[in-house]
Structures are given as C-alpha cells and as structure tokens.
Amino acid sequence: MHDVGGQSGFGPVPVGDEDVEPFHADWEARVFALSRALRHNGVFNGDEMRDAIERIPPHEYLAASYYERWLLAIETILEEKGLA
C-alpha cells in the first residue's frame, strides 16, 4: 500500500497535529536516527526503505503509526538481508 492520493474516507485533515516537538516519543526519534544511519552506511537506500513500507499488508499499514511503519520496514529489510 502506498499511493493514497485521491482516495476517500480518511476524514478531515488533523490540522491541529502540528508537532511542536518533532517526535511524539523517544522511540520515534531512535527509529528516525536508525533509518538515517543505516542509509548513510549503505545498509539500504531510500527506495528499498519505501519499497519495504509499501509491502506492508494494507491492514497493518493502516493500523500502524507513521514511525511504526518505518520500524517494520527496517526490521523487514534487515531480516531479508540477514544482517541483524
């Protein structure tokens, strides 16, 4: 699941979710840092990351929060590559 452009049914835009703090929880920041570091170190590239996110089954994709999807993608890539 990836391109939600034009789909309906997601309700109003949560305009109040303005993120004064960039992350809602410390673990979100750690996932962000892990993604940056592993990309920088050549473990995977941005396209692989997005591909892994897009391969998350729709029911999981929609139920997961934004950084949970990143986490699942990183776990999936590392598992597939047998790296960690």
Binding site: V4, G6, Q7, G11, P14
Partner: peptide
Amino acid sequence: PSPGWYRSFAYRSRVVR
C-alpha cells in the same frame, strides 16, 4: 521534521482531489 498532518492519510489522500 514534518508535521503530523503532513503525514496523515487524510492530507495525503485529499489535497490532490
């Protein structure tokens, strides 16, 4: 870092329509 609304399904799906 991007605001929550930018990452929301509602914004992503609707602003193009």
